[in-house]
Amino acid sequence: MSTIEPNALYDRDPLEHMALFEGVRTKRIFAFLIDVVAIAILTFLAGIAVFFLGIFTLGLGWLAYAFLWQGVAILYSAFTLGGPYSATPGMRAFGVELRLFDGSRPTPLIAIAHVVVFWVSVTMVTPLILLVSLFSDKKRLLHDIIVGGVVVNSAALSRPY
């Protein structure tokens, strides 16, 4: 029995190894919900810190409130999706991770691009852009295609075929 090497994943037909993509769409939805809650909690905590910063800076620090949610979401993605597990905590809870076409893990900069393209596409084109995954061969979304990545089941990467 052989196992699939991560960097050989993307040269193969996805229909040949369906275990890589089984249930990825559903897992991503629930992972997103967990991540939104985590970002909301972190934003609340950062908001408390900004409040005290504003007091110490005589109100100047309160300007950070304008970009607090976005800043927390970008840092969250950079450190989690761009980290050693290639997955946010929500993605890890559901056993999926992001890999690039060459099989490598995304860097923090690619993770930031991934999240920024996601939010820009969803807000400017409407959430209907998420329907792209219904027509994609590897259940990829538009922002996955743009950054050159694919979300796969973590356990299937080392599963023998």
Rank of each mutant, 00 (worst) to 15 (best):
residue 142 L to C: 09
residue 130 L to A: 07
residue 138 K to V: 05
residue 146 I to Q: 02
residue 157 L to A: 09
residue 131 L to C: 07
residue 142 L to Y: 09
residue 150 V to K: 02
residue 143 H to M: 02
residue 140 R to K: 13
residue 137 D to P: 14
residue 132 V to M: 11
residue 146 I to P: 06
residue 154 S to P: 01
residue 130 L to R: 07
residue 146 I to E: 05
residue 149 G to E: 04
residue 138 K to S: 11
residue 137 D to Y: 04
residue 136 S to F: 09
residue 128 L to T: 07
residue 142 L to V: 06
residue 154 S to L: 11
residue 153 N to G: 03
residue 136 S to K: 06
residue 148 G to R: 00
residue 130 L to E: 03
residue 145 I to V: 13
residue 157 L to W: 12
residue 152 V to R: 02
residue 152 V to E: 03
residue 137 D to R: 11
residue 154 S to Q: 13
residue 131 L to M: 12
residue 146 I to C: 02
residue 142 L to F: 05
residue 128 L to D: 00
residue 144 D to N: 03
residue 151 V to A: 10
residue 132 V to F: 15
residue 157 L to V: 14
residue 148 G to P: 02
residue 152 V to W: 03
residue 141 L to M: 14
residue 147 V to D: 01
residue 130 L to N: 07
residue 143 H to I: 02
residue 134 L to W: 15
residue 146 I to N: 01
residue 150 V to Y: 06
residue 137 D to W: 05
residue 133 S to C: 15
residue 129 I to Q: 01
residue 154 S to N: 11
residue 142 L to W: 04
residue 129 I to L: 06
residue 130 L to P: 06
residue 135 F to T: 07
residue 134 L to P: 13
residue 132 V to L: 11
residue 157 L to P: 05
residue 131 L to T: 07
residue 135 F to C: 10
residue 140 R to D: 09
residue 156 A to S: 10
residue 133 S to H: 13
residue 156 A to Q: 06
residue 129 I to N: 04
residue 144 D to Q: 08
residue 132 V to W: 15
residue 145 I to H: 11
residue 136 S to T: 13
residue 136 S to Y: 09
residue 130 L to H: 10
residue 140 R to Q: 15
residue 148 G to M: 01
residue 129 I to S: 00
residue 146 I to D: 02
residue 154 S to R: 14
residue 155 A to N: 09
residue 133 S to I: 12
residue 149 G to L: 00
residue 128 L to S: 07
residue 152 V to A: 05
residue 154 S to D: 15
residue 141 L to S: 06
residue 136 S to A: 14
residue 143 H to F: 06
residue 149 G to F: 01
residue 151 V to P: 00
residue 150 V to L: 11
residue 150 V to T: 10
residue 152 V to Q: 01
residue 133 S to T: 14
residue 148 G to W: 02
residue 154 S to G: 04
residue 157 L to T: 09
residue 139 K to Q: 15
residue 153 N to K: 04
residue 156 A to M: 03
residue 149 G to I: 04
residue 141 L to H: 10
residue 154 S to T: 14
residue 143 H to D: 02
residue 144 D to K: 03
residue 143 H to A: 00
residue 149 G to V: 00
residue 143 H to P: 08
residue 156 A to T: 09
residue 144 D to E: 12
residue 142 L to M: 08
residue 139 K to M: 10
residue 137 D to V: 09
residue 155 A to G: 01
residue 145 I to L: 15
residue 146 I to R: 03
residue 128 L to Y: 12
residue 145 I to S: 03
residue 130 L to C: 10
residue 154 S to Y: 10
residue 145 I to G: 00
residue 136 S to L: 08
residue 144 D to A: 05
residue 151 V to F: 04
residue 150 V to H: 11
residue 142 L to H: 00
residue 157 L to D: 10
residue 136 S to R: 13
residue 127 P to I: 11
residue 140 R to S: 09
residue 145 I to R: 06
residue 128 L to P: 05
residue 130 L to M: 12
